[in-house]
Amino acid sequence: MNYVLKKEVFSKFVNSVLKEKGIDFIAPVKSEQNDIIKFQKLISFSDLCLDKNAYYPLKEWFFKKNEVLFEFKGDKITIPEKKPKPKIFFGVRRCDLNSINRQDVAFSEGCWDPYYFLEREASTLIGYHCFEKEDNYCFCGSVGLEDHYDLMFYDRGDYFLVEIGSKKGAWFLKQRIRFFKKTTERLSARKKVIKNANRLQKKNIAPFYDHKNWKKGVDLCLGCTSCNTLCPSCYCFEFKDKVNISNLKNGKRIREWSACQLKDFSEVAGNHIFRSDREHRFKHRIYHQLQYFNEKHGKHLCSGCGRCIRGCPTRIDFVGILNNMKTKKPNVKKPKK
């Protein structure tokens, strides 16, 4: 069963959730100083910005920039008790919903990450569908996205069509049913297609690892890591022990973001660096996003959000670079990992 939320009650709906105690409403908000859209705790309905997707992804709400894993006193360890506040994430685009799914996969692979999933379990994801690519950087239509949301909002002019994607979503809606009306309207898969967003023409990039055209991107790369830090899917981290100055035996272990475009990202004991040249670092990111992850999990890590190009200082368009690699290359070698 689908539901309808009339635009005239939309602000009432949002305001009523904003007033609810014990729950935070996180949505895209445009900064007054610099026009940057970020997922933030919404204070007033008028701050909600659905014009275009957020410049920064919402991953930092789950995969924290700095997470205290435990505190230690000598060899005694205490894990900080965390009870995250329930959070409603509103206005999440299809690409970003998929990226959250990929991080769910990454943080449950082999071992279930309690820090990440505490936040995830406290979250309800409400999507906002794009019917058309947002700008020329989007290529979500090329990477095989799936449905991954608790509720999904489709803008239908003077009302939103709301689809339920999970029990959590259904429960959230039921609690606030007074704003919604049942409907038999359904959107066909064809109508849901995001127009002009399938720019990446290659299904399998494996045969192109040694292609000479990569150089065009590599030479332009400054190693600034904007692509990694802006990517909603990237999930790499490193650990640090921060000891207290008053007693060096005490302190805390912290997990911080890392980025594969850093030279020392692949540095191991003995100072060996596995990817010491920029070319391998540059290609590693793209191959992890569009090949290695898929080989392991059957879907791309990349959700096609385009942030890594939009936010790249030299706007390296790896999608265009890939598209221009001609298929019939005589001596392509097997991809290296």
Partner: peptide, 24 residues
């Protein structure tokens, strides 16, 4: 003092800047 090899930070300013959530 701990006898550790002091860790030298090699990340660029952009990494810090993006973590701060700044516009470029």
């Amino acid at each position: 003092v701990l006898g550790k090899k002091p860790e030298i930070y090699k990340k660029p300013v952009c990494f810090d800047c993006r973590k701060e959530g700044n516009p470029c």
